[in-house]
Nucleic acid binder design. Structure first.
Length: 238
DNA sequence: CCCTGATTCGC
DNA sequence: GCGAATCAGG
């Protein structure tokens, strides 16, 4: 199978819609899960919660000098000199270090040595410097030792939580309860995805109409047709 | 064990 | 460019 435009588009949609690589591969057919992942990477479709990802890549040198003879995999350079080449939209790792807050154009080498050049508004108060070690090992300092710039807000992954107008009066995931039909309308990830919202057929999670779709008499083997519930993509008859 | 995505590397 | 093989976390 080749990656036609339709298949690529479907891969994109499902990938961004949160489908797993296995689901996508199964849906597309003719490709493996690895193929989907590989293609997604080549399309720069990355960025999705990965079980293995939240690991930094800390220069994993060759572990076994002897008894190698297996396969030379990666050669991690001692330093990281990237950021320009790779990582198109990857936010910088938050953990280790944060860039020093941008100092104003007069970065004196020492704050203590510049008291005579202080800001006219803020009178420099050489206070008793109380330095101790806090619980976490950080240094407690007197107020005069505080850095002037407020530490920047830690970068966080933004979550839209947008109240799209298109689904304003539709049944959203949060509107679901035991009494309304939770049959999905549309496709997850799409802006107008919502749920049926009708009154349920008592005892069932769907309304009467969708119960008819959800529960069907078991036909004998061979006479079955799979009109799937359609989480993604169009009906694909196997 | 199963699942997941990431990465490498021969083709 | 493709994807199997492999890695590694849940």
């Amino acid at each position: 199978m080749s990656w036609t435009d339709e298949r690529i588009e479907k891969l994109r949609k499902m990938w961004e819609g949160g489908a797993t690589a296995s689901q996508i591969a199964d849906e597309l057919g003719g490709v493996s899960r690895n193929a989907v992942i590989g293609k997604a990477h080549r399309l720069s479709l990355k960025a999705r919660p990965s079980p293995v990802k939240p690991n930094e890549k800390p220069a994993r040198p060759a572990p076994a000098p002897v008894a190698a003879a297996k396969r030379p995999r990666d050669e991690a350079p001692p330093f990281e000199t990237e950021s320009a080449a790779a990582a198109p939209a990857a936010p910088a790792p938050i953990a280790a270090e944060r860039p020093a807050p941008i100092a104003s154009p007069s970065p004196a080498p020492s704050a203590a040595a510049t008291t005579e050049n202080a800001d006219p508004e803020v009178a420099p108060k050489p206070q008793t410097r109380i330095v101790s070690v806090g619980p976490g090992g950080f240094l407690r300092q007197g107020p005069s030792d505080q850095q002037q710039p407020i530490p920047p807000a830690p970068p966080r992954r933004l979550i839209p939580a947008k109240p799209s107008a298109e689904i304003a009066d539709k049944t959203s995931l949060l509107d679901l309860n035991d009494r309304i039909c939770r049959w999905p309308m549309g496709h997850p990830g799409e802006p107008d995805f919502h749920f049926c919202g009708d009154k349920v057929n008592p005892g069932f999670p769907y309304c009467v109409e969708h119960c008819g779709r959800a529960y069907q008499a078991q036909l004998p083997r061979g006479a079955r047709r799979p009109p799937p519930p359609m989480p993604f993509g169009g009906p694909r008859v196997r």
